[in-house]
Amino acid sequence: MENVPRDRMDDAELMLRVRGQDDEAAFALLVSRHQKSLLNFFARSGVQYDSEDLVQQTFLRLYRYRQRYVATAKFTTFLFLLARQVWIDELRRRQRRERLIERLVVEPHEEFTAPADPSAGVAGDLDLARALAALPEGLRQVVELAVYQELPYAEVAAILGIPVGTVKSRMFNALAKLRALLGEERGDTP
């Protein structure tokens, strides 16, 4: 393996080098390969402004927990497990902050109001993005991992801590709910 250039190593090989030799270049390659997918993972979770901070926290946690990585585990399973924990911690932090703000009775801030013409300059599929955001979190996470990250159901199950059968049912329910939210006719509906 020593003769293989790092950029030709797969993620698991790089992670083993990080774990065993604290290989900085291997870690930098992992950052380079996965920063964009993690950024969009958090952005699609509804994090608008702090997504990059959460990506940074995830990689920092990856480094801290590097000894927990075992060669039999898929790297993406390990990485997104950590990302999900970072997201859960972020949700808790937000809830604490919201409670604090409620106590301080802060007046609403002008910049958080919507502009007068909400349709102006909107790019992309607005209805779809809204529908995705409106999914229950348990369903949205399955869509995120299986559709956007293209992970096998077994990996999704490992990350979310649920059986593969539950992944299947959640995926079916998520797609059906998205269709309903988008106003699409079901094929079996007259």
Binding site: L39, N40, E52, G124, L128
Partner: peptide, 24 residues
């Protein structure tokens, strides 16, 4: 529907993100 989901635009990491991560 899945094909439509893939049409949502992706965000690009800012140019300094990787160096910030490695610095931390």
């Amino acid at each position: 529907l899945v094909a439509r989901l893939h049409t949502l635009p992706l965000r690009e990491p800012s140019p300094l993100l990787a160096s910030r991560i490695l610095a931390s």
